[in-house]
Amino acid sequence: MTQKPREPDPTLIWERPEPASRPAPGPLSRDRIVRAAIELADTEGLAAVSLRKVAAALDAGPMRLYGYMSTKEELLELMVDAVYGEMVSEGPIRGEWREALRSIAHRTRRAAREHKWLIDLVAGRLHLGPNALAHLEASLAALSDTPGFEDIDAVMQAVGTVNAYVIGAIRTEASELRAELESGMNKTEWQNASWPYIQRMVATGRFPMLARVVRDATHPSFDVVFDKGLECVLDGIAARLSR
């Protein structure tokens, strides 16, 4: 008779103790489970992550995992928090306010590039894991002694604005890369295939701005676009501070 997963524990996963260690058939821990899930997501994508597949990677029965977490959603939260832990391990966020906000932005982008599934989980609600809170604490503290940021609301707005830009930029990059994979064409191949159509549409005269893009735009790399966009955001924060 198949055993059913136990009912979800009402306490948050962060404050719930792990079950007692069991040496056979193999030792488990939340950390081992989460690392296996991250490796699976990194290699096969987030859709491949399930308690059953993670258990198989650890040579354990799926029911054993329910002793460490109650739902797949808790596993995803643990995965996100582990990545925040990687970001925190980079050390304190230092420098004047622009440098500090650049550091925050680039840490998040590096993490999302290493773990491409991360962007699908970080947007939306606030993550409450200990590493996520440590990263947020460090981000807010980086501006706390800066003139113009005496009000905690100003600190939160600046950090939140940069984070919103970063998430949007990363989503755009991820969408383009995903489109390449799904179409089987890289960016250059897709542009070459689309070029005759674009030329015909521009020739109608109905799209003068698009004609300027085709004629004059430099189409820089993702890295250049990201940094220029970030500087626009920082310039906006600076203009607000000056007022």
Rank of each mutant, 00 (worst) to 15 (best):
R178V: 03
D151K: 07
L230P: 06
N186S: 05
P19M: 04
R243F: 14
Y84I: 04
A193T: 07
A60E: 05
V233F: 08
A111R: 06
P8T: 04
R240N: 12
L65I: 10
T11D: 08
R102Q: 01
Q199A: 06
Y165A: 04
R206C: 12
S139C: 03
K116D: 13
D42H: 03
R16H: 01
A203E: 12
G148Q: 07
A41D: 01
G85D: 02
A238K: 07
L136G: 10
D216N: 14
E74Q: 10
A47G: 09
D42G: 06
P5V: 05
G160S: 13
M87K: 04
S50Y: 15
L76E: 12
A111W: 08
A211V: 09
E150L: 14
R64Y: 07
C232W: 12
S242F: 07
L12T: 11
K228F: 06
S183V: 02
G95R: 02
P17V: 08
S175W: 12
I13W: 15
T172L: 15
E15I: 13
R171T: 12
E137R: 15
W195V: 00
A48N: 03
R30M: 09
S50I: 14
Q3K: 06
A138P: 02
K4T: 14
E74C: 07
K53N: 15
Y197L: 15
L230S: 05
G85A: 03
L12N: 10
P130T: 11
E180K: 06
A105I: 05
I198Y: 09
P220V: 05
E231L: 04
V224L: 10
A138M: 10
A134R: 12
R243A: 12
D216C: 09
L46N: 07
E39I: 00
L234W: 06
L118D: 02
A123P: 01
A142W: 03
E44G: 00
P208D: 11
P17Q: 05
G95F: 03
L121C: 12
K4D: 12
